[in-house]
């Protein structure tokens, strides 16, 4: 197994543009659509993913020489399920309101394809520090994505954006479009943001261009 030295900074930063999980790789779409009805929900979902992803990346990377190739996926699943259970119990205990909103999507982080994709494509091949930075970077970018999608949907769907106890603007200045908080609004927002991302930053990203393959 070749292990070229890679810059830790690059491994952190690449998640934002080149390997942006939502807009370039288009993985982990289920929670992206389901819980992004507000900035706050997006933030907490993102935080949960940062923790799980960093944890699983580090342990997959640490154990990569001992994991037999043939049964690596079940082992990844165990390494991913452990932090998911931790997150779930911690959220239930300390953030019951948020947990109520996220519901099933917290335990479902275990099947989020971002995490298994990073384990398979990155942590299984690269040293621990790189995998740590990769987990933090991809997780942070995912959090930003969820917050942006959540922000657009919350603003258009309720006319306001709430950050903790601060609500801006104090009263909506237009009639909120209820559709933005529903699944169709999620799809429309995600699609338009993806267009925007690919038009502006697409040349730098690892975007799969299906129009050019036959």
């Amino acid at each position: 197994m070749s292990e070229p030295r890679r810059s830790l900074g690059f491994d952190f930063i690449k998640g934002f543009i080149q390997e942006n999980p939502t807009f370039a790789l288009a993985i982990g779409m289920c929670p992206t659509l389901a819980v992004t009805t507000s900035v706050e929900n997006g933030f907490w979902m993102g935080m949960a993913v940062v923790f799980v992803l960093t944890f699983s990346n580090v342990f997959v990377s640490l154990l990569r020489r001992f994991i037999p190739d043939a049964i690596r996926i079940p082992i990844f699943v165990i390494l991913i399920a452990t932090p998911v259970v931790i997150v779930e119990l911690v959220m239930k205990a300390y953030l019951p309101a948020i947990y109520e909103v996220m519901g099933i999507f917290v335990p479902l982080i275990v099947v989020n394809c971002i995490i298994i994709a990073r384990a398979e494509a990155f942590a299984y091949r690269y040293p621990v520090m790189n995998s740590l930075m990769d987990g933090l970077g991809i997780g942070a970018a995912y959090t930003v994505n969820l917050m942006v999608i959540g922000g657009v949907r919350e603003f258009l769907g309720t006319g306001q954006i709430a950050l903790g106890s601060i609500v801006f603007p104090s009263a909506p200045f237009f009639e909120p479009a209820a559709v933005m908080l529903t699944p169709p609004g999620g799809f429309i927002t995600l699609g338009l943001l993806m267009v925007l991302f690919r038009v502006t930053l697409g040349s730098k990203a690892k975007v799969e261009d299906h129009s050019k393959t036959s």
């Binding site: 479009a177 209820a178 933005m180 169709p184």
Partner: peptide, 8 residues
């Protein structure tokens, strides 16, 4: 359909 879902 969009305006119907947005402002029912």
């Amino acid at each position: 359909a969009f305006v119907l879902a947005a402002w029912p």
